[in-house]
Design a protein around this nucleic acid. Structure first.
Lengths: 216, 216
DNA sequence: TAGATTGTTAATCGATTAACAATC
DNA sequence: TAGATTGTTAATCGATTAACAATC
């Protein structure tokens, strides 16, 4: 129960290393050194070693890191091995495109709940999922313990919906609304890369304490 | 021609301040202190003052900052007053949704070039813009000095297209491809918020030296 | 064993915060 | 003027990098 503080940037870099390891694996390489890894991204080799060392000892002195075991370890750390349930909120232009987009599923994200406030859409099935009204957001997400949401609602309602999502227990939001939204007490609200980095974010927020209910 | 180095995070926060100032302006407030601004986001008031001080002296001692002039100054600094031409690369599901999305235009982004490699799409007009083939990416973007691109191509071709965009002179990329892409020597490749923060990025990369052609 | 590279400690660098003189 | 808040310098904190003993 030690309180190890892992820098945000370290976690971000972990997903970069992972991506690189996948490529090396495809190239039939079996091991890689911290220097080789660092050179690919213009980073420092000590930084690579330090980043990895936060999570354990993965290397072999004099040799480097065996690629496959390290990749597997990183996948575990970043939560890439499990499937994540995702709630899609807003079924307009963008929301409709996103739900048909297969890239999420391949990366282990499953859109398993869809919300929209348009009565004409509620109850309809899209890609096998029944669209629910806005009033269901809180109870459904809470009940099903969904931690990731895609926000694709009109800008005017975005902040209210976001507050609701946070209250329901969502810890990572992929924001498609062209507005700057804030969550008091949260480290950040940024969608970065569509898949790999959303996972980083989800890892990240999962380890971040939720703000206490008592407002300051 | 001084070499003032403005921290990346400062520029990001500038857009947060701006957003807040817009709200305060709607609330008919005329001035705000660094402390009030800081408290909204859990930041430190000294940080707010320091961030602003990088760009000039906007405050009034004993009083704070007049909201409207400060907002206008920040808009200028972040390049929100000008219209930005944007190239959309990839007219699949997502690309098609994005080109019809009006939010960009409202924020001063104008999709003024569209590329796709599908011969069936080349030459067609979408939202008044003629779709061009992949071979036109380099010459058109270079000729028209387009600095911002939306990347919505299949993952397999994403890195190649991105390299091309960078070669053509693009300095900010809104990446919709679910893959981790890299630009050697660039600070970062992250799309953050759709509009406000894309501008931050564009401001940012505009001031970042392009990597020298000689590879390391 | 000799050579190489890790894991980790210490030094450096940069960003955040505290403090306060300047000044509205 | 007295009170308040800026702009800025100095102190603190955290992250990056260098260095090197441990060890494969």
């Amino acid at each position: 129960m030690r309180a190890i503080k892992i820098p945000e940037k370290t976690v971000t870099r972990l997903s970069i290393y992972l991506r690189c390891l996948e490529e090396l694996e495809n190239d039939e390489m079996s091991s890689v050194t911290s220097r080789q890894l660092a050179d690919r991204f213009g980073l420092n080799s000590a930084q690579v070693r330090k980043d990895l060392a936060y999570f354990g000892q993965f290397g072999v002195r004099g040799l480097g890191y065996y690629i496959t075991p390290l990749r597997q370890s990183l996948e575990g750390i970043l939560g890439l091995k499990r499937e994540w349930e995702v709630a899609l909120v807003g079924l307009g232009n963008l929301g409709s495109a996103l739900i048909r987009y297969k890239g999420f599923r391949e990366k282990g994200f499953k859109i398993s709940a869809v919300f929209d406030q348009d009565p004409a859409k509620i109850g309809r099935r899209v890609e096998g999922i029944q669209v629910m009204g806005a009033s269901k957001i809180l109870p459904v997400i809470r009940k099903r313990k969904i931690k990731i949401a895609i926000l694709a609602v009109p800008a005017v309602t975005a902040q209210a919906v976001l507050d609701l999502l946070v209250e329901a227990g969502v810890s990572a939001v992929l924001n498609f609304v062209p507005a700057q939204l804030t969550i008091p007490g949260w480290v950040k609200l940024q969608n970065v890369d569509l898949a790999v980095l959303l996972k980083t974010l989800s890892y990240h927020t999962a380890r971040t304490k939720r703000p206490s209910s008592g407002k300051t």
